[in-house]
């Protein structure tokens, strides 16, 4: 029910092109990883999707309707951002209560249960929360609002390992119970690699990948061994990057692999998302 279409989207800040004619779709009820290096254009994209920024060119559609200045459509999207825009002096529990006004399906009881699980003190003022608890507070609102589309921009910023673990588990539980479109923008790729179903990679304002994790990872492989033998093996193959350690070399190769052509002393391993990301977005 909540398909998002990003069409020919561009955004210029003065002479800087933050997004360059980006087009793609978010399929409904899937968990997406939105990946990109610092300054790649991830937050710009999320801000345009939620009408916080106007695009220089192009549109974003949710269920066929343009999000621009469209309150009905915007109420389907909840976006958790790094910035805190709440009033001075407002308490956590008051925000939970008020959220119901903007998101009629907001589940106050669930938000209180989550606050208890994370150890968030609901009588504290929002502005006085630490970085970690400020993230937790926003995570709880995102999970409780029951919007069909949830955008999470760096959701685990400042969270300790235990709280990150709890967040990922609650996210999956929540998604299993009520499937919806979830977009997680994060630098902690390894942590979300198994949770996301689809991956979108943005580099310098351009879309360089939009595919399922399974496709992406089965598209290539890593091969390691003595440097000279690796060089020989990768000749005429599409190599996206190499790591060298002394006389050893690991090459990241795109393409299918015929195992019978691999010499015995070379070792094959699968690509992992983080390595692939680093190779694709380097330089």
């Amino acid at each position: 029910m909540s398909k998002i279409i990003v069409k020919d989207l561009s955004k210029n800040f003065g002479k800087v092109n933050a997004l360059k004619n980006v087009s793609f779709e978010f399929e409904e009820n899937k968990i997406y990883g939105l990946l990109g290096r610092n300054g790649a254009g991830k937050s710009t994209l999320l801000n345009i999707m939620t009408n916080k920024l106007f695009p220089t060119n192009g549109e974003v559609y949710v269920d066929g309707e343009n999000v621009c200045e469209n309150d009905k459509v915007l109420s389907k999207i909840y976006c958790m951002m790094e910035k805190n825009l709440y009033l001075d002096g407002i308490k956590v529990k008051e925000v939970f209560k008020w959220s119901k006004v903007f998101y009629p399906d907001f589940d106050v009881e669930y938000s209180l249960t989550l606050a208890d699980k994370f150890g968030l003190k609901i009588n504290k003022k929002v502005k006085e929360l630490s970085t970690g608890y400020s993230s937790i507070f926003k995570i709880i609102i995102a999970l409780s609002c029951n919007a069909p589309i949830i955008l999470l921009d760096e959701p685990v910023l400042g969270l300790d390992a235990n709280h990150r673990d709890l967040f990922y588990k609650e996210l999956i539980a929540n998604y299993s119970e009520r499937p919806r479109t979830i977009v997680i923008s994060t630098h902690l790729i390894e942590e979300v690699a198994d949770i996301i179903e689809k991956v979108i990679i943005i580099k310098d304002g351009e879309l360089i990948m939009n595919d399922s994790i399974e496709n992406v990872l089965s598209r290539g492989y890593a091969i390691s061994g003595v440097a000279s033998k690796i060089d020989e093996f990768i000749e005429n193959k599409q190599v996206i990057g190499v790591d060298t350690l002394g006389g050893l070399k690991t090459a990241y190769v795109v393409g299918s692999l015929d195992k019978s052509t691999v010499p015995n002393d070379l070792e094959i391993s699968k690509l992992d998302l983080q390595k692939l990301f680093i190779q694709l977005t380097n330089a």
Binding site: K30, K169, D194, E197
Partner: peptide, 14 residues
């Protein structure tokens, strides 16, 4: 499936 995906932190579709 839900219990498994929560426990191992993997996507329910997986």
């Amino acid at each position: 499936t839900t219990e498994i995906s929560i426990n191992y932190k993997i996507n329910p579709a997986t």
